[in-house]
Design a protein around this nucleic acid. Structure first.
Length: 793
DNA sequence: CAATCCCGTGTTTTT
DNA sequence: CACGGGATTG
């Protein structure tokens, strides 16, 4: 490839291309209708994308307002905007850099009136839509047909991702099946309820935008004309609806004389997509990997650029990543390489329990810290959110500063949802769910009966549930009830006056904060919590204070922001603690959240069968392969140091279960891993590897599978087991259960491996009772009583 | 109508 | 284990 292929670099382009390798340059400079950048992990994809945008702006090929860049997370969007601004300064303003969902909300708010919604529509999160479906399933007595709210929800979500609606689904469904008929009924009801409530669920945001564009071509043309350059990041994770949205946006404009607006014919916007099919980890949410694998077919004449050089990780880490992902079939072979040298070995550790594992992580973090690595350059990953608990417990005890990324916890709390429901009740009074939610919070003595009476009155008089609150006297209710309903009505009115001034003037920046305070204080909600004796309610008050602080922060960042903008932000921006607090803390997050990020040191924890790959994925088509990609994503986040850890036992649902090392560990060449404690060193019974197991395959290539180093001779143990197939699986099912064994300090016990010893103390409860034992010859050990191979003497 | 208790249940990833 | 739902009681 020679430079002559490219346009001559101008002076302005020069610094945009400096330091880029040839494919990267091509990705920045190519101009044409469609460009696919296949970007392996760490190949400088964000740099290429930002420089491409900067180059379009610098060369005056595009105004900022003509650029639409779509990322997968808000965080990625924020980062991209920041980096583009660093290069081109203020002229970056006016670009749309956002997630699919945010972009669609923006469009929908603008066009809502076209199809029976208002600008103030509510966005239902999955909890909201499940609540609605729960009611519908109950009302329709669908549970007798085996339909559950969660099941219906996930089916509806999948259908919407395929752009199907109740009618189109019904055409192909087997309508002689009563369960199918019922499902179609509920789907239709659900959609009508959403419409009535002036609300969209997450999937609607995309699907309804596509429908809008298709139903109103003149509306679509406005956006087609506006966005001349559409760039999509993480393209491998787009679903069908998102794909169709892109298609609609990049369709050529046909002169239209009918819709009131007249455009000249124009070619479709230029489309740039970036992705890596090896990092596709959202199939569970409808992502269709074919969108990227068939890009060239979908967009004939598309240019494809491959970025394979990795600038992030050391070669050892890349080797591990390559050797794992190689096991996925039907993928295009792609090998990441680096010129950074091998770097450190990967460190492996097998803990006895998840706490043991967490302790190892905490210790290593402190060691790294002392050697000069900042906390913010370290991250701990796990497969499931629940795994963060054990880590947190140990980190708190070890005084390791940490922050949990992602995780919607804050906005999932009941008191926060209540407070937001109050705001929604003001912003979008049509949202009956929100009004019903706050009806009896705080306790006003309004139960099912009264709620139904209000609903009936509203229906009988053709008014909304919200408006019915002004007429309790006409419902035949007791005086106390009437009074409290009127009070609620008055509070909502007062807040409405603050948040949505009738004068038509924009509300001041402080409006959201004030409105929320009015709602919380005058409704009695805050007082009820403050008066409560429940110690948890104290924390709830603090959470509400934090929410008020969030509104202040919002006002600072968005002086023009309205209540609707605020609600949009909290609905779509899940992580509360993102960019601003670089306070020097270790980041904890799920593997999914980790995508797109990078750290000097990465701890990948819980590398066990049934966790990664997750048990549930085993039966799903493509499940295990997707789990492998997830593992691959985790590995490739690390720049210099990678730690892989697991535990031999894991507490789940209050039960201690035995865990097996993940199959993915076997896919990494043992030379790459330095096991501080290998799965062969520890067994599920709390001791070292038992003789019985080793006896089956004495000698041989001790530990090569796990890269086990010989133990410093002690206790006269034989070489450890080598291959997984004879190791944990066999132990697993034969684990003993001493659940009822009573032990107390002073008792003498015998251990299969350690011999006899004296119990010093017993700590913990139930299945987690731990005996602290001083063995006569093996020294002090801690044993989980439930599973240790011990007996009283 | 509210508070309490008991039982069963499910158990992944996220905009 | 943690949560929600249902039944029971005040």
């Amino acid at each position: 490839m020679t430079d002559a292929l490219f346009s001559l670099p101008t002076a302005a382009d020069d610094d945009l291309l400096r330091g880029l390798n040839p494919p990267q340059r091509e990705a920045v400079e190519y101009r044409g209708p469609a460009l696919l950048i296949v970007a392996g992990a760490g190949s400088g994809k964000t740099r290429v994308l930002t420089h491409r945008i900067a180059s379009l702006l610098r060369s005056r090929e595009a105004w900022p307002s003509q650029i639409l860049a779509i990322t997968f997370t808000n965080k990625a969007a924020g980062e991209m905007r920041e980096r583009v601004e660093q290069i081109v300064g203020d002229s970056a303003r006016g670009m749309w850099i956002s997630t699919f969902h945010s972009a669609c909300v923006r469009i929908l708010r603008r066009e809502a009136e076209q199809f029976g919604f208002t600008k103030a529509f509510t966005i239902y999160d999955s909890g909201d839509s499940r609540a609605l479906l729960k009611r519908l399933v109950r009302d329709r007595e669908a549970d007798s047909l085996g339909l559950t709210p969660a099941g219906v929800q996930s089916r509806i979500s999948k259908l919407k991702n395929e752009l199907a609606d109740a009618e189109s689904y019904a055409r192909d469904a087997n309508m002689s099946d009563p369960a199918e008929r019922k499902f179609v009924e509920i789907f239709g009801d659900y959609q009508r309820e959403l419409q009535k409530a002036n609300a969209f669920d997450f999937d609607d945001l995309i699907a309804q935008t596509v429908f809008l564009f298709r139903a109103f071509p003149h509306v679509a043309d406005v956006y087609r004309k506006r966005f001349r350059h559409v760039l999509v990041d993480e393209y491998q994770d787009t679903n069908h609806a998102q794909y169709q949205l892109i298609r609609e946006l990049t369709r050529p404009i046909q002169g239209d004389a009918g819709g009131g607006m007249v455009f000249e014919d124009a070619p479709g916007a230029s489309l740039t997509v970036v992705g890596d099919s090896d990092q596709s980890i959202y199939a569970f949410r409808g992502a269709d990997i074919r969108n990227i694998t068939e890009f060239e077919r979908d967009f004939p004449g598309a240019r494809v650029v491959l970025l394979e050089q990795n600038y992030r990780s050391s070669q050892n880490i890349l080797d591990a990543a390559n050797s794992v992902i190689r096991n996925n079939f039907d993928r295009k072979d792609k090998k990441l390489w680096s010129d950074q040298g091998p770097g450190e070995q990967i460190v492996g550790f097998t803990g006895y329990s998840q706490h043991d594992e967490a302790q190892f992580v905490a210790d290593e973090i402190e060691t790294l810290r002392r050697s000069g690595v900042d906390y913010q350059q370290m991250a701990v990953f796990y497969r499931t959110n629940s795994q963060s608990r054990a880590l947190e417990e140990i980190f708190i005890r070890a005084a390791v500063p940490y922050k949990i990324m992602g995780g919607t916890k804050f906005y999932d709390r009941a008191e926060i949802k209540d407070a937001l429901a109050y705001l929604v009740a003001v912003a979008n009074p049509a949202d009956e769910m929100a009004v019903r939610r706050i009806l009896n919070r705080p306790k006003r003595g309004i139960g099912d009966v009264t709620e139904t009476a209000i609903a009936r009155f509203a229906a009988d008089n053709g008014m909304s549930f919200r408006d019915a609150l002004a007429h309790p006297a006409e419902m035949g209710l007791g005086p106390k009830l009437q009074k409290s309903i009127l009070h609620l009505d008055a509070v909502l009115r007062e807040a409405t006056a603050v948040l949505l001034p009738a004068s038509g003037e924009p509300a001041p920046p402080t409006a959201v904060t004030e409105g929320l305070q009015v709602l919380l204080n005058k409704s009695g909600y805050a007082d009820a919590l403050r008066m409560s004796r429940d110690p948890q309610d104290e924390a709830r008050v603090e959470n509400l204070d934090e929410l008020v602080a969030v509104t202040r922060e919002f006002a600072r960042n968005n002086p023009e922001g309205t209540i609707v903008d605020f609600l949009t932000e909290v609905a779509l921006v899940a992580d509360t603690d993102d960019l601003d607090d670089e306070s020097g803390a270790v980041s904890l997050m799920t593997l999914h959240t980790a995508k797109g990020l990078e750290f000097d040191a990465v701890f990948l924890t819980g590398v066990e069968e049934d966790l990664i790959p997750h048990r549930i994925s085993a039966n799903e088509p493509g499940g295990p392969q997707e789990e492998r990609r997830l593992f691959y994503v985790g590995i490739t986040r690390a720049r210099k140091r990678l730690y892989l850890s697991l535990a031999m036992t894991r507490a789940q649902f209050g039960e201690v279960t035995v865990a097996m090392p993940s199959r993915f560990l076997q896919e990494i060449p043992s030379l790459l891993i330095d096991w501080k404690q290998s799965p062969g060193d520890v067994n599920s019974r709390g001791g070292l590897q038992s003789r019985a197991l080793n006896a089956r395959r004495p000698g041989g290539s001790a530990g090569d599978r796990w890269g086990v180093k010989p133990l410093p001779a002690g206790g006269g143990l034989k070489p450890k087991s080598t291959a997984m197939e004879k190791f944990p699986g066999l132990v697993t099912n034969k684990v003993r259960d001493n659940g009822d064994l009573e032990l107390a300090a002073g008792d003498r016990i015998r251990h299969d491996d350690f011999g006899e010893g004296t119990v010093d103390a017993v700590t913990g409860e139930g299945a987690k009772r731990i005996a602290h034992v001083r063995f006569d010859s093996a020294g002090a050990k801690k044993l989980l009583i439930k599973v240790a191979p011990i007996a009283k003497v």
